[in-house]
């Protein structure tokens, strides 16, 4: 019951938010919510640490940006195209890396992401260090104008809700069960006759597509795609968000993304301190609060309910 009240309140707050808060900030949060949810799908539920997840996010931004700038494509098709393209990239990355588990997987994805980074740095269409600027917010379905940040917000919100629902479906499907089983005991899954590698590749594909969707949305929010979005800094930030919020929980990425985006926004004036503070909080979470905020809140809730 409390759950539905909570959802309703959250829904109303989300709908009313742009009247109170700068829509760009809200949309940034939503993009990172989707991005963090995609990362969480891999690490939280399949136990795979993708240390270069920004490659999907940043590349998708370029793809969506290029399509919107150079073709008459509508915004939702640009999103779709970027998502599919990143799913394909994710599949390829999975083919190369999924056979190796744990720490090896992290290093390989990190290195592949750097490969993509240098590729994009060299590619003629990315605008190099300047980035790809002036990405238009083409009309939704060719008819609905979303060029103002206020209207775009509702589109981004709707897609975010759909994306989270999709993650929920994936996690609670038989496929999600197998993923969790692989995370907890891969050898056992193997002995039951499933091929863990195939499942991992599919998980990477889905996660990459979702990260691509987040990147495409981000390209229309800021109307720019940059190399920074592909860099290891962003890969690190998304890990931080997910861990801070709570690994393997559905609400975790939402909370983590919101907090970190607001933190970044707030710390933007502090120059180098932003990085130092982010690193310190990250370290503190790893050392003292690995269950994240949502995990800690759940544990607290359980304790209070059990005691009373």
């Amino acid at each position: 019951m409390t759950r539905y009240v909570l959802f309703a309140a959250l829904g109303i707050a989300a709908l009313a938010a742009p009247f109170q808060v700068y829509p760009i900030l809200l949309m940034t949060i939503l993009c990172f919510v989707v991005f963090a949810a995609s990362f969480n799908l891999l690490l939280g539920f399949a136990g795979l640490l993708c240390f270069g997840h920004a490659m999907f996010f940043g590349t998708a931004a370029y793809i969506a940006g290029w399509l919107l700038k150079n073709t008459a494509i509508t915004i939702e098709l640009a999103f779709l195209a970027a998502t599919l393209a990143m799913a394909v990239l994710g599949y390829l990355v999975g083919l190369i890396s999924a056979r190796r588990g744990g720490i090896q997987f992290a290093m390989i994805t990190f290195a592949i992401a750097q490969f993509i980074y240098f590729l994009l740095l060299r590619a003629p269409f990315t605008g190099g260090e300047d980035g790809m600027q002036g990405i238009p917010r083409s009309a939704l379905f060719g008819v609905i104008n979303v060029s103002s940040s206020f209207t775009l917000y509702y589109l981004i919100l709707a897609i975010t809700v759909l994306a989270i629902a999709a993650v929920y479906r994936i996690v609670h499907s038989p496929f999600g069960e197998v993923l969790r089983a692989i995370r907890d005991n891969e050898a056992r899954v193997d002995s039951l006759g499933f091929n863990p590698v195939q499942f991992k590749i599919l998980a990477i594909t889905l996660s990459a597509g979702l990260a691509g969707l987040a990147g495409a949305m981000k390209a229309t929010v800021f109307q720019i795609a940059t190399l920074h979005d592909v860099s290891w800094h962003v890969s690190g930030t998304i890990i931080f968000m997910t861990l801070l919020g709570g690994l393997g929980t559905l609400a975790g990425p939402v909370v983590g993304a919101a907090l970190v985006v607001v933190l970044h926004d707030y710390l933007a004036h502090f120059g180098e301190w932003a990085l130092i503070i982010q690193g310190s909080v990250f370290l503190a979470v790893i050392l003292f609060m690995r269950q994240g905020i949502v995990g800690a809140a759940k544990a607290l809730y359980r304790r209070v309910v059990v005691r009373s």
Partner: peptide, 19 residues
């Protein structure tokens, strides 16, 4: 899990480089 030590040293990089 060894992933945590990778992430801890990653966080250390942010702090050291920032400083």
């Amino acid at each position: 899990d060894h992933l945590y030590s990778l992430l801890a040293t990653f966080a250390a990089v942010l702090i050291i480089e920032g400083l």
